[in-house]
Simulated scan of single mutants.
Amino acid sequence: MTTAISAAQNFDCQSCGACCAYSADWPRFSLETEAELDRIPAQFVASDLGGMRCVNDRCTALAGTLGKSVGCAIYAVRPIVCRTCMPGDEECLMARERLFGSAA
């Protein structure tokens, strides 16, 4: 079993949120169609229209308290970069390390 797979079994995204508060540069739009982008509410889109709006490093669509209980206000229409980040993958572990001091 790979590290990412075993880690994913132990990581609950709804009690973490690290990937959504890692960097204001991370939630960038890349492969979305115009129709997909149009479904994201304008208040969550950065002023340069290149990604999600963040306050400091935290995506404004993230609700709740990091490390306790979080959820995405636009989960059903979130950008591709958010859809591809998986529990226990390299990006997940990097974000957890930065915010919590460990990936566990």
Rank of each mutant, 00 (worst) to 15 (best):
D25S: 14
C13R: 02
D89I: 07
G71E: 15
L37R: 13
K68I: 13
C19V: 07
V45T: 12
E90R: 10
E97I: 06
S15Q: 14
S23G: 10
N10V: 13
C85P: 03
S30R: 12
C85K: 06
D38T: 07
S15L: 02
G17Y: 09
T33V: 08
L31I: 11
C16M: 03
C20A: 05
C85M: 15
C72M: 09
Y75V: 02
N10T: 13
K68Y: 02
C92I: 00
L62V: 12
S102H: 13
F11P: 01
T60Y: 00
A103L: 05
G64D: 12
D89P: 11
P41Y: 10
A63L: 15
R78Y: 03
E36P: 03
I74Y: 02
R39M: 10
P87S: 00
T60A: 06
F11Y: 07
C13D: 01
C54G: 00
Q9R: 14
L37F: 04
R98A: 15
G17F: 09
A76G: 04
L37V: 07
A46Q: 09
S23V: 00
C85G: 01
I40D: 08
Q43H: 15
A18I: 10
L93E: 10
P79L: 09
D38V: 01
S47D: 15
V81K: 09
K68H: 13
A18G: 02
N10H: 12
